[in-house]
Structures are given as structure tokens and as C-alpha cells.
Design a protein around this nucleic acid. Structure first.
Lengths: 229, 229
DNA sequence: CGGGTGCTTGAACACTGTCAAGAATTGTGG
DNA sequence: CCACAATTCTTGACAGTGTTCAAGCACCCG
């Protein structure tokens, strides 16, 4: 069962689905919303977290800082997805940074409520376990990719992943504007190398590039490339 | 908070610690033990799993199969550590393979018991969440390493990790015998490249090599290398 | 002792990263 | 709205790193 990260949005599990109406109301009554501008940081590696974050609008990147302050982008989160719950439930400082990549909104749910739900509603706890499990599967698949695939293969895979995560506009362009540097930091390479791969894909008509927007013209071939075929 | 995989054994969380004596007895009454020879496979990617596995004796490697059947070794598990619980709790086929790397023993705990404990004992559920969280942190750290570090840096890191996971014998050699090919599949490289790095470390007196056993002579310098300093 | 397997080394090659420079885009202040 | 500055993007040339292929060596097992 080769897990593929393509077509697997970050959280396909709605952890709130098992909540009773009363529990849902409790969350609604206690949550607060905040706005973030492109580049604003929600929380940083090492921060002590006191709330769970849920994206309402926009998008955020989640990254770890590695060698020489260079970030590695673990994933993106989009409306409906949550972040921070693991640090809360493990009572440990965050080990990643969350930053808005466009003008966005987050709401905060107090940690006490999450703790209460985990303790009182086993199905909620199970949902959390399943969500974390999904994330772990994805991370392990990425590890295998990073260890074994070549740059063009990983790049193809990430393009497909972004396409599936963010969807496309009326012209077929992926609905996200990610800088080349960020793209490179997802694929795990230098921005120059990434650009060369993109140029190559473009010259082969696999993709179109309109500035930061990318349109996938040939899903099939891109998928084959991502699978080293 | 740069999470470092070195010195962080796979499961530093004892998920059974929160169980009552009655619950512990229930597990003891239902668990079965089996022996495995070096190379025996416990379960494979895609297998439907019906029990949770706990290592009693020996050691196992956990890997995913990637490009051209090439394995990527995610981690090792040693006595006390468990495996298979995520597939059970998510009710999904396994996405990794577990194989004995020496003559070993595993015990099986029926999935119903684990489900029962998650439903009835919130602290147990929380322990599972925390364990999965730890694994996810480790995976994300490895991802950052794999994306950014050079081969010699990753190799140094893995040598230290193995040292801390398996411990050392009376002569200071790490207590595990891992083939060069397997080592390469952890670091994410070809066995020839790995061998060159090991030879280089040896010529610099950082390590001693006695066949498959490796002794770390200079922890400090190896640690510096692993941190790209 | 012989054959198989895994380990090691060398050499050629491919891939990716780094540095440098120019082009394009974005942001800013007048 | 324009002009200029700053940033980001792109390309080329080159160096460094890691892979592949080939061959010989060492070890293990019957």
C-alpha cells in the first residue's frame, strides 16, 4: 500500500464530526477570531501554545527551521484545518512555525476545551489519533520520497499536491501564490534548481507558468514523472 | 525548539503507564508471544492488522517500499516498543513493513482490547496521542534533515541515533548489526556512498569499525558534524 | 575449501548546489 | 500614475556531491 502524498489533503478527517451539539456550541461560545496579513507569524518553534488554531480563511505554511535558519516547509493548512493540537495535548512547546502566506483568518479554541473533549468524548480522542496517524503516514511517505526520488520527480509530486490542496481557478491555474523560494523549501532544494525543473517542465508543455501561478497541462505525464516512471 | 532525532528513542512514552492493575491484567491474559528469526516479516505494507505488536526481545526494522522496491527504513523498534496501533485505531491497512533484524520475540495484543482501552480510559487515549505526536515530531525533524543536510551530516546523526537506541557493549561498540545496505537505506543513499562516508570517519579516528559493529570514538566531533558545524 | 554474499574501492558520470549577473516584478514615495 | 529602489526570478558557468558501474576483496556457510 504505497501511500502517495498527492491527492491527500492535509486533514481529511473532520475531528469535530463526533461532537454532540452541546459540545459544538461550547466551542463556538469560546472561540475567538483574528486576522493575519501575508507574512504574519501565528506562532513559532519553541512557543508555548495555549489554544488550538483553526483556519477560517486564507492559507498558512507550517515549517521547521533547519540548517542556517533555512526553513523546511512541512505542509500548508487551509480553511477547516487545525494546528497546534499536538503541542497542547503533549504539553510541549511547538516544534514548528505557522505563517500566513496570504491575508487570512484564524480562530482560537482554548486548550481547556480540547482537553475536556479528549477526556469526555472517546470518539473525539479517536479522531485526533486518526488525524495524527494520517499526518504521520504522510510524513513517512515524504521521507521515502525525499530519500529516494530525484528533484524533478519530487517537484512533479509537489505540483500535483498543491493542485489538489488548493484547487484551480477558472483558467486552470492552481489557486495559490507560492514564492520560488518557498516552493524550493517544500521540495527540499535550492530555488535555482527548482526554477530549472519548472523551466524544463514548461518547455515540455507539462505546465504553464504565469508568474507565481502554475497550471498543470498534462496531469498524466506529471504523475508518471512523480512516480519515477 | 529544534527537535533532534539523536538521543530520542522511538517511544519515550510508556502508553501502558496509565492503565489500572485490572486493565494491565486484561492485557496480560490476552496476549500471545511469537518468535521471529532474522529476516522474518511480521507484517507487510497493505496487510490488514488485527493485533498490536509489542517487542519482547531482539529488534525489528520498520520500512516503507519506495522506488523500484527499494526500502526506506523509517525506524527500529526494540523491547518495550509497540507497533501497529495506528493501523488498528484508524482501521486501515498498514503502510509499513516490520521485519526482524535478529532473532526476536513479539507479543500480540488483540485490537479489541486496545479499542476498549481507548474508549474507556481517556489517559490511555492521551498517551497514544502523545506517542503518535512524538513520532510525528521525529518524522518532521528527519524530513528537515533529509531536505537540508549533506550525506556525511546525516550519517553522523544516524550513527549517534543508533548508539543511543541500541546502547553499547563492553567494548563500546553499538549493540546492533546492521548491514551496509540497511544503513544506507536509513540515511537515504546508496550503500557505496555510505561506505565512503564511514571510511572517511574511520580514517579521521571518529569511529572504529569491526565488521558490522561500529564504535563511536569522538561523540563530540560527530555531533558537530551532524549539526553541520 | 569453494561458492555465494556482502563489503570496499576506483573511475566516470550525472545531478544538484553555489556564485554571479541580468531580467522581471513588486513596492514605495513623490 | 510614474519613476526608482528593492526584491524576486531566471539563466549561465562552474564546483562539489553523490550515483552508477565495474572489479576485487573479505567473510560466512555449508
Amino acid at each position: 500500500m504505497p501511500t502517495n502524498i498527492v491527492g491527500k489533503p492535509y486533514s481529511i478527517i473532520d475531528i469535530f464530526k463526533s461532537l454532540t451539539p452541546v459540545e459544538k456550541t461550547m466551542i463556538e461560545d469560546h472561540k475567538e477570531c483574528f486576522s493575519y496579513k501575508n507574512g504574519d507569524i501565528v506562532y513559532k518553534e519553541g512557543d508555548k501554545i495555549r489554544v488550538i488554531y483553526q483556519v477560517i480563511k486564507g492559507a498558512f505554511k507550517i515549517y521547521k527551521t533547519g540548517i542556517e535558519e533555512k526553513p523546511y516547509i512541512i505542509t500548508f493548512i487551509i480553511p477547516g484545518e487545525i494546528s497546534g493540537y499536538r503541542s497542547i495535548l503533549s504539553n510541549e512547546p511547538s516544534c514548528s512555525t505557522v505563517e500566513a502566506i496570504e491575508d487570512s483568518e484564524m480562530c482560537f479554541i482554548p486548550s481547556e476545551i480540547i482537553f475536556h473533549l479528549v477526556k469526555s468524548n472517546p470518539d473525539f480522542a479517536l479522531s485526533i489519533i486518526q488525524l495524527t496517524g494520517k499526518e504521520l503516514d504522510r510524513a513517512n511517505s515524504l521521507l521515502t520520497d525525499l530519500a529516494q526520488k530525484k528533484l524533478n520527480e519530487r517537484t512533479a509530486e509537489i505540483l500535483l499536491m498543491l493542485h489538489n490542496t488548493f484547487g484551480v481557478d477558472e483558467k486552470g491555474y492552481t489557486k495559490c501564490e507560492i514564492s520560488r523560494k518557498d516552493l524550493a523549501n517544500i521540495v527540499g532544494t535550492a530555488s535555482e534548481s527548482l526554477i530549472r525543473i519548472l523551466s524544463d517542465f514548461k518547455s515540455k508543455k507539462l505546465i504553464d507558468i504565469d508568474n507565481k501561478r502554475i497550471r498543470i497541462n498534462d496531469h498524466k505525464r506529471l504523475k508518471l514523472i512523480s512516480e519515477s516512471i
